[in-house]
Design a protein around this nucleic acid. Sequence first.
DNA 1: CATGAATGAGCTTTCATTCAT
DNA 2: AATGAATGAAAGCTCATTCAT
Lengths: 186, 186, 186, 186
Amino acid sequence: MTTAILDAAEAEVAERGLAEASMASIAARAGVAVGTLYNYFPDRDGVIDELFRVRRGAISPRIREILDATSGGFEARLEQFLCGLLGLFDEHQAFVRVVMEASGGDGLRGARGPRPVMTQLKAGLETLLKAGVDEGVIAAADVDLLGRLLAASIRGVVLHALEVGQPFATDAPRIVRILLDGARRR
Amino acid sequence: MTTAILDAAEAEVAERGLAEASMASIAARAGVAVGTLYNYFPDRDGVIDELFRVRRGAISPRIREILDATSGGFEARLEQFLCGLLGLFDEHQAFVRVVMEASGGDGLRGARGPRPVMTQLKAGLETLLKAGVDEGVIAAADVDLLGRLLAASIRGVVLHALEVGQPFATDAPRIVRILLDGARRR
Amino acid sequence: MTTAILDAAEAEVAERGLAEASMASIAARAGVAVGTLYNYFPDRDGVIDELFRVRRGAISPRIREILDATSGGFEARLEQFLCGLLGLFDEHQAFVRVVMEASGGDGLRGARGPRPVMTQLKAGLETLLKAGVDEGVIAAADVDLLGRLLAASIRGVVLHALEVGQPFATDAPRIVRILLDGARRR
Amino acid sequence: MTTAILDAAEAEVAERGLAEASMASIAARAGVAVGTLYNYFPDRDGVIDELFRVRRGAISPRIREILDATSGGFEARLEQFLCGLLGLFDEHQAFVRVVMEASGGDGLRGARGPRPVMTQLKAGLETLLKAGVDEGVIAAADVDLLGRLLAASIRGVVLHALEVGQPFATDAPRIVRILLDGARRR
DNA sequence: CATGAATGAGCTTTCATTCAT
DNA sequence: AATGAATGAAAGCTCATTCAT
C-alpha cells in the first residue's frame, strides 16, 4: 500500500507539480480514501519525504554500481558512467520528472530532497575527473568547471529527452566527445 | 504602480518561492493594499504572468542586441554572446532567481513564463552555431546537441554563481573553449 | 470484556478528559482492537453511557445501603451519611474524576450520566433532612436550600481532595457541624 | 466585530459546550464567514482564551469593588459580598454558563480560563473570613473549610438558579445565616 | 482609484465507524 | 468474536478574490 501511495504521489507530482499535489488527488489516484494516506504516513510532508527517500534508496546504490563498473581509461569510464546514468534515469522517468519539478532553485531555498542524488552524481563525476587528471588527460584547473558543465549537460539532456519523449541514454558518447575534444572540426 | 507591484512580486518570488508568494505579501512589500493589486491585474496568475512578460520584454531586445553586437569569427562571436548574456543576467539577478525557481520542469507542465527567453537564447545560439557551420568550424550534425549543451551550461553556471554569490560572467570564455576545443590536454 | 472496556474508558476519561478519550485510546488501554469495542457497544456514546450506567449501578445501591445503615438522631444520621458517602467516593476515585470532568453544566445541556447519582444523593439528603424536620431540629423552610448546600459542599470537598490528593471522608463531621450549628464561635 | 464574535462564541459554548463550539458554528451565530474569525483571532484557542480574558476583565474589577464596598461587621460584609457577587453573576449569565461548562475538573487538567475568577473569589472570601477571625466571630481553624464551603455553595446556588431559570442573588442572606449560625432550630 | 474587511472554496488532518478477513 | 485497515464526514485554517466605503 505504501508503494501504491508513493507511486500515486510520484505521478501526481510529476504531472501537476509539488505544490499542486494535494492529499486528495494523491488518494484519488491511488484509489484509496484520504484517511488511508494517514494510516501510512504522518502527514503530507511525510509522503513527499518518503517518496524522495525511497527513490533515492533505489537510485543511490545504482549510481555507485555504475561508477564501480566503469573500466578502462578515463575517457572510456566517463562515457560508461554517463551512459549508465542516463540509462538509470530512463528507468525512473517518473521520478526524474519529480526531481526536475522539485529542483528549481535548489540550494537557493530549502531543497526538498533530490539533492543527495545530484550530490552523489557530482561526487561520482569528480572522482572520474580526478582520475582524468591523474592520467594527464585533463588539467586539474578544469575539474571544477568541467564537473559543473557535465552535471548541467546531464540535466539539459534529460529534460530535453523528457520533453520530446525520447530515451535519455543515446547522447552520452557525443557529450563526452564534445566536452573532451570539443566540437571544433579538424 | 504596475512596476512597483511587479518589483514586489519579483522580490517575493525570488526570496520565498513561487508557491509562497501570496498576494498579501506582494501587496505589503509594494506598500499597497491587496485590493490595489486587483486594480492592475486580473488575478494572481495575472501578476506572475505579467512579471514574466515585462522582464522578458526588457531582456529579449537586449539578447538580440548582444547577438547583433557580436563580431569577428564564430568563436569570438560565441564568446561575446555568452559573455554578454551572463552579464545581462547579472543585471537581472532577482528575475534570474525567479526563473530558476519557476523553471523546474518547464514544458513538462504549463510553463509559466521563462520559456520564451530560453527559446530566444537557444535561437541566438543556433544562429551563431549555424554561422559556425558555414565557417566550417563545427559540424552541422553537432548544432542541435551543442546548442543544448550550451544552454544547459549557462543554466548550470548561473545557478552555481547564484548559490555561491558570485557574478555570472566570468566563466564564459572557458565554457566556449571547452565546448569548442575540449578539456583534453594536448 | 465489557468490564475491561469500561475500565479502560473510565481510566482514559479520568486521565485525559471526555473529549480526548478516543475509541482508539480506549481500545489500546483495554488491550483490544477498535473493532472489538463495536462488538460490545453500539458507538462511542454507548461506551460512555454504559460506563455511567454501570458505575451508577454499583454506587446507587451502596448509597441506599449507607442511608439505610444510618441510625440515631438526625444529626448523627446526617454525619454518618456524609461520611459513608465520601468513603464510597474514595473507593471510586477514577469514576469521581470522570463525573467531575463530565459534570460541568449538567442539566444545562444533555447531562451525560452522573445526574442520577446526584439525584439519588439529593433524595437521600432530603429524606434525612425531612427526618430532621420531623425531629424539630431544622425548619421545613430550610430543607431545600440546605440540601443544595450539602450537595454543593460534597462536590467542593471531593474536588478539593482530588486536587490535593487527599482522601475525601475526613471533613464530613465538620461539614455537618458547620451546616447545623454554624461556624460562629460562641 | 471582536465583540460580536466573542458574544457568539460565548453563546455557542454556553449552549453546546466547549468541545462542540466549532469555528463554523461560532461564525454562523455571529453572522459572519469562518475566515472573518481569523481576521480577528489567531485560531480557535485564541477566540476562547480571549473570551475568558475579556469577561474576566469585566468581572474581576467588579468583584474587587464589591468586596471594597462591603462595610459593617464581618457578618454584614460577608452577606453584602455574596449578595453582590450573585448579583454580578446575574448580569453575566451567559458567561457563567460558560464557566460552569468549562470548570468541570479544574485543576485536574489544563483549566482553560475561569480559574482566575474563582481564585479571586476565594481570595475575597478569605479576606473576609480573616476579618471574621479578627473580630472573633469565627475560629481560624475553620477559615479554610468555610471558604471552600462558601465557594462550593455559590457554585451550587448559581447552577441551581441557572437550571430553574431564577435570578441568583436571592439566597445570599440565607446562605450566610446557615453557614454562620447553622440550620438548627433553637 | 485605493482600501482592507469579509468571504468561502479548498486544503490538511483527525477519528468514529465499518467490514472483509 | 476479534481484528485493524479503510473510510469519509467534519473540523481547523489559509488565502485568492470581492466590494462597500
